[in-house]
């Protein structure tokens, strides 16, 4: 950071002109309470219901997956930032959040090396190569998950969730979306809502996702526009599909099953890789919903939340540029 020294010296010489330039998440902070660390703590608190639901349904498998992912992410963060010659700031808890979200997005049955590789890739390729927290283009947890999904299709594909020999009731059946795609059966809405179905650790219980998600939106840690946009556009497309009589799933099935709620509240709302302006957030959310339904209805994958979020992440800079808000009373800003 040799380049920074003259700038700092200049700033010290004229304290009035001191502007602190930092990467997002950008937060207005007067008392110091609203820092990245607090924000990440909020996310962790909101994730508690999901973790509890995962523990109830998957017991020790959930503990194992969470431990592997969180430890890997934190260690990777420390190692990679040190390697780049930066000060490793683990106190901001962002690596822990990445680890928990990653673990919750994996199947209970994934072997130990899946969490290890996914965590390393999430932090290394998803975050540190772009310059660390705030610089990453894509949601790190989803980069890690996409990598292992393509890497180990057998360990993470639709069939990975099933085990006839397991002692747990929930995991003897295929996931609700897989069953719909392959066998044309639909699960009961009530069990989807409560979470007594098979799936990735964090996605089974719609109730837990809603509880945590609404807490995040009320705390303004997550943007409600993104979550609302995602859910609404999914609902509209699913309703059209339902009215056209396509498939066995109703609109409510599409919303409650799979990772849609988890993705809408916890993955898409990552403040770093989502747009900044309210209009942009709506566009982003609606785009995710549309891609999810496109993949669920027309592709070989039963689920599409991860790819939808990654695709829309890529459009974030463009959305930000399109939706620069017009200042009150001022002229429209010039588009660069």
């Amino acid at each position: 950071m040799a380049e920074d020294t003259p700038r700092e010296a200049e700033a010290q010489a004229s304290p009035e002109a001191h502007i602190n330039v930092a990467p997002s998440p950008h937060l207005a902070s007067t008392s110091g309470a609203c820092t990245t660390r607090w924000m990440m703590l909020d996310v962790l608190i909101a994730l508690v219901p999901l973790i509890v639901a995962a523990l109830v349904v998957f017991r020790l498998y959930a503990v194992k997956q969470l431990a592997i992912c969180v430890v890997t992410c934190v260690v990777a963060e420390a190692l990679f930032t040190r390697w780049r010659g930066r000060h490793a700031n683990l106190n901001d808890l962002s690596a822990v959040v990445t680890g928990v979200i990653l673990a919750l997005s994996l199947p209970w049955s994934a072997p130990w090396y899946v969490g290890l590789i996914a965590g390393t890739v999430a932090i290394g390729l998803g975050k540190i190569v772009f310059g660390g927290l705030g610089q990453n283009l894509f949601n790190p947890a989803m980069v890690g998950r996409a990598f292992v999904l393509v890497c180990f299709p057998v360990a993470l594909g639709a069939t990975a969730y099933q085990s006839d020999t397991s002692a747990l009731d929930a995991v003897t059946a295929a996931t609700p979306l897989t069953r719909a795609v392959q066998d044309g059966e639909s699960a009961s809405l009530w069990s989807l809502f409560l979470g007594n179905v098979n799936g990735s650790l964090g996605e089974t219980s719609a109730l837990a996702c809603l509880a945590g998600g609404i807490f995040l939106c009320l705390r303004r840690t997550a943007s409600w526009e993104i979550a609302a946009g995602t859910i609404l556009s999914t609902a509209v497309v699913a309703l059209i599909a339902q009215l056209l009589g396509d498939g066995v799933l109703s609109m409510l099935h599409h919303i409650l099953a799979g990772a849609l709620l988890f993705g809408a509240f916890f993955i898409a709302t990552d403040p770093v890789s989502s747009p900044l302006t309210p209009t942009g957030k709506w566009i982003f959310g609606v785009g995710i919903g549309l891609f999810v339904m496109l993949m669920r209805l027309f592709s070989g994958y039963p689920e599409g939340v991860m790819f939808a979020v990654l695709l829309m992440n890529a459009t974030t800079p463009l959305i930000n540029r399109w939706t620069i808000p017009r200042p009150v009373g001022g002229p429209a800003p010039v588009q660069v």
Partner: peptide
């Protein structure tokens, strides 16, 4: 050894090239 299927697919080429070039 769990085969890293992504490595023989096109994304593996981009990732490997980028990391080795770095």
């Amino acid at each position: 050894w769990p085969e890293w299927v992504i490595m023989v697919l096109p994304p593996g080429a981009f990732i490997t090239l980028g990391l080795l070039m770095g």
